[in-house]
Design a protein around this nucleic acid. Sequence first.
DNA 1: TACCTAACGCAAAATATTTGCTTTATGAGC
DNA 2: GCTCATAAAGCAAATATTTTGCGTTAGGTA
Lengths: 189, 189
Amino acid sequence: MAIKEAVRPGGRSARVQEAVHQAVRELQTAKSREELSVPQIAHKAGVTPSTIYRRWGNLAELLADVSLERLHPDEEPPHTGSLASDLQAWGEHYLDEMTSPTGQCMLSDIMASAERERRQRCYRYNETIMACLRERAVMRGEATPSVEDLMDGVIAPMTYRLLYDLDTATSARLSRWIAQTLSSTDTPG
Amino acid sequence: MAIKEAVRPGGRSARVQEAVHQAVRELQTAKSREELSVPQIAHKAGVTPSTIYRRWGNLAELLADVSLERLHPDEEPPHTGSLASDLQAWGEHYLDEMTSPTGQCMLSDIMASAERERRQRCYRYNETIMACLRERAVMRGEATPSVEDLMDGVIAPMTYRLLYDLDTATSARLSRWIAQTLSSTDTPG
DNA sequence: TACCTAACGCAAAATATTTGCTTTATGAGC
DNA sequence: GCTCATAAAGCAAATATTTTGCGTTAGGTA
C-alpha cells in the first residue's frame, strides 16, 4: 500500500479521511494504544471497517498517518535573535511535546510504520525547520553550519534519545549539542 | 506484559522459547514481514498459538524479542590501532549489517516494540561498544571524548539516518562524524 | 445530462486472538 | 528418590479482527 497524498479533494474520500482521522484523535484521548482497534475507529467515524483496511491497510499505518499529520508545523518557530537561541527555543518546545505521553505515542506510531516514505517525511520535516532557522541566521550574517550538520549535530542526538533513552532527552543536553555544532563554524580554520 | 529475561533455564520454557525463536528466524528467511503470523510460527515451532500470545503478547513483541537477541555482540570489535580507526571499522561493519534488508527489519521490529525497556536495551548495547572502544584508547594514552559524546556524535547520527533516511547512512559520512567528534578532544582548550 | 470509475457499504468467509479449563513438567522440600 | 505446589503448556470454544466478492453511490469528465 502506497502512501496516498492527494485523494480527490472535497469529495467523499476527503470526508471519510477527515472523519476517520478525527475519530482516531478523539479515541486517542480516551483510550490507550492497545485498546484501539480498527472496528472501533470505524464505528466512531461512521464508516465500515473494510473502508479503513482498504485505505490504510492496518491500524499501525492509520495511526502513523494521523501522527504524521499532527507533526506538521502549525507556524514558523519564533524569532529570538540568534541561531543558537532559535535552536534552543525551538528545541525545547519540541522536547516538551515529544517527551509527553502523546508525543511519545506519535513518535512510536510513526516509527512503527512499515512505509519508509513516511519515516522519511518525518526527516524532511525537521530538515525544513533547520533550513528555515539557518536561513534566518544567514540573513543576519551569522556564520552557520550546513543544514546537514545541524541534522547530525542537533536533531540526531535529540531524536535518538527521544526514541531510545527518554530520560536523557533534556534541554541541558540540547544546549551542549547546539554549542558543539555551532562551534565548528564559529571558529573556522 | 513485561520483558522476561530469565525464564527457568534448561526446562520446558527454555525449550519452547528456543523453538519459537528458531521458527521465527527460519520463517524470516523465507517470508516477508507481512506474511508472518503467530499461528504460522506456532505451527513451525510445534507449539500452540496461545503459548506465544501468553508469553509475548503479540507478533510485534515476539519479533522485537528475536531481533534484539540477534543484535547481541558475537565478539569484541577488532583492534585497529587507534580510536578513530576502531570506530570507523566497527561502524562500517554495523552500517553494512543495518542497511541490509535483514538489518532494516531488525531495526524496525525493535522500534515497533511498545516496550521502552527493549528499545533502551538497544541503546545500552551501543553504549557498551563505545565504552569498550574508548577504554582501549584510554589504555593507549589517546585523548578521548566521553562515551556520551561518542553516542551523540557518532551513534546518534548513524542510527538516525538508518531509521529515517537510509540512503544517507554512508561510511563517508561516518568518517565525518568520527573526525568531528574526536576533534573536540584532540585539540582541547 | 449521461457516462466512467474510484471509493464505499454490506455481509459472508477466513484468520487471528482471547479465554477458561485441563494437563504436564519442573523445582523445592522432605 | 518421592510428593507437592506451581508455572507454563495444550486444547478447544468463544470472540474479534481482517479479507474478499459483489452491488451501490458519488464525483469527475465529456
